[in-house]
Design a protein around this nucleic acid. Sequence first.
DNA 1: CCCAAAAATGAACACACTGTTAACTTTTGT
DNA 2: ACAAAAGTTAACAGTGTGTTCATTTTTGGG
Lengths: 198, 198
Amino acid sequence: MSIYTEKNRKTKKLIQTSFMQIIENKSFEAITVGDITKVAQINRGTFYLHYKDKFDLLDQIEQQLFEDLGNHIDELQKYYSSMQKFEKNQEQLAATLFNSIKMHAPMLKIFLSDRGRAGFHLRFRDAFSEKVRVNLEKNESFHTNLKVPMEYYLSFITSAFLGLIEQWIQNGLDKTPDEMTALYIEIISIIQKNQSGL
Amino acid sequence: MSIYTEKNRKTKKLIQTSFMQIIENKSFEAITVGDITKVAQINRGTFYLHYKDKFDLLDQIEQQLFEDLGNHIDELQKYYSSMQKFEKNQEQLAATLFNSIKMHAPMLKIFLSDRGRAGFHLRFRDAFSEKVRVNLEKNESFHTNLKVPMEYYLSFITSAFLGLIEQWIQNGLDKTPDEMTALYIEIISIIQKNQSGL
DNA sequence: CCCAAAAATGAACACACTGTTAACTTTTGT
DNA sequence: ACAAAAGTTAACAGTGTGTTCATTTTTGGG
């Protein structure tokens, strides 16, 4: 746990930030280990002391992102939770989500684009689905009365929400998280009035 | 237009099917041109007579897929079209879509997975969005009364639909297109009863 | 049937990136 | 000062890239 661990951590961080700097303008598949170590100004061999390869590097960055997002959501969920009405709770979850997405928007923008890695949107959706599922299961009557398979329902609902998020990020965060929440509620109400268009 | 064109077309097709055979078990990023030509039993140089590189190959396969899907939808849309009620039309569009998705499921399954190429789901959604947009614009009152930006609405709605499709494909097409349509309608009705869970 | 055009082959090429190794230097704590 | 950890340097064999060029095969028109 001494300073060695600290130095180690710092180098890893340096590699990560250098990598993120490069992926701003170059697709992941085109990035080489040499590109990264040149920007980080370290020896190429040093990279391999910390990561197996560039995929391992991205895996670790991705994992940390999901952890951060998850923790942020969990923490804020504590403030509301059980004593409140179900519907109101959902709305607050949405607002919470838009906020934490905004914090990680630069990274998400890249990872969701064609510069990222294949399948990211699936891993993102799965991580997100899990949070929604836990939340849904708090409402027992909903869970037991659901006529469609849970997996399909979750996939539909989370994909819709992520679609909104993707559009938001693609638009360069042109709205505040509160505006996004309002927009989200408005869309739901359009569907409820049966004017969905689908 | 002679037999040379035909021969050319056949070789391209051979390269494509060989590639699709390989990508069943190996991720796109790991596939080499040598892998492809070995399976196709042609010279590696021949590959470069037809494609710039493996990315060009995938681009062309992808483009053709979107073209096929689009044509299929357009054609079936003709049978219903304008004289019918708007809502009924939407339901038929959904049924049509589930059918054409099923036809291309093997390829879509791979391209949407982490064996495919980054950003595929975006290109897929955009192609799909376009069809939905055209369809929505037939209903003028909807279009003019829409309170949220069209892009956000489209993103929400098409992502939701594609989420359902992704789950379906992931489940190995465990339902018929008709069952999927029923399932889709049921989910919409859940949301309309305000039990959405989001 | 023969010939010119197109397509495919085979082998070689320089180049770039990979992941690993081994000897060495620097940084750091005790 | 010395031992341990981290990083450096340079070299390596291996693999894939995209291109070249001389050669062979396939094909249709005259």
